[in-house]
Amino acid sequence: MRRKLACVAVFAVAFGANAASANPFTDLAALPTFYTDATMKTMKPMAEFKKAWFALSKHDQAKMTKACDDPALRKPHAQFCANVLILGGTK
């Protein structure tokens, strides 16, 4: 019984973590710090964007860089991802 419960718990954690990290654009609380307005349409200048980027944890930076490497996630956030990929060291 314990083995069954452990397997179910591992599955639930793995499934939940995967779904939660699928799109960091929807769940990253720091995302608005990169924009000048509440609607997140106007990007901050690169100097301010850079400050906000380096204020993120390495984990969040890695999540954003990975998401911006995905063409499907990058398309609606093209300008943001261009800055992320420059600061993230890829492309």
Rank of each mutant, 00 (worst) to 15 (best):
N18T: 13
R74Y: 02
A19N: 10
T39M: 10
M1A: 14
A38R: 14
A55Q: 12
L5S: 06
H59V: 13
Q61Y: 12
R2W: 10
H77Y: 04
D60C: 00
K91V: 12
A17L: 13
F54I: 10
A29D: 02
H77F: 07
A6Y: 07
V8Y: 04
K51S: 09
D69T: 14
D37P: 02
S21Q: 08
Q79R: 13
A14V: 14
F49G: 05
R3Q: 13
P45E: 11
M64T: 00
G16N: 12
Y35N: 10
K51Y: 06
L28T: 04
Q79L: 11
F11M: 08
L5A: 10
A30H: 03
A78V: 01
F49P: 02
S57W: 04
A12S: 06
T33E: 08
F11P: 01
L87T: 01
E48Y: 02
P32H: 15
M1T: 10
A20L: 11
A9H: 05
L85I: 10
M46D: 11
A14T: 14
T42G: 00
R3L: 15
L85R: 12
A47R: 11
F11I: 12
T65V: 15
L31E: 08
A55C: 03
M1L: 14
D70Q: 11
P32L: 09
R3C: 09
C7P: 00
L73I: 04
A30M: 03
W53D: 00
L31W: 03
K50E: 15
D37T: 07
L31H: 02
D27E: 05
K51L: 09
K44S: 03
T33Y: 04
A20I: 10
I86P: 00
A72R: 12
A67T: 01
C81D: 01
L73Q: 09
A19G: 12
P24C: 06
N18Y: 15
N83T: 15
H59M: 05
A52Q: 10
A47C: 00
M40R: 11
K63Y: 10
A67F: 03
A20C: 05
C7R: 08
A82T: 14
K58C: 04
Q61V: 05
K75C: 00
R2G: 12
A9Q: 07
W53I: 03
N18Q: 09
K41Y: 01
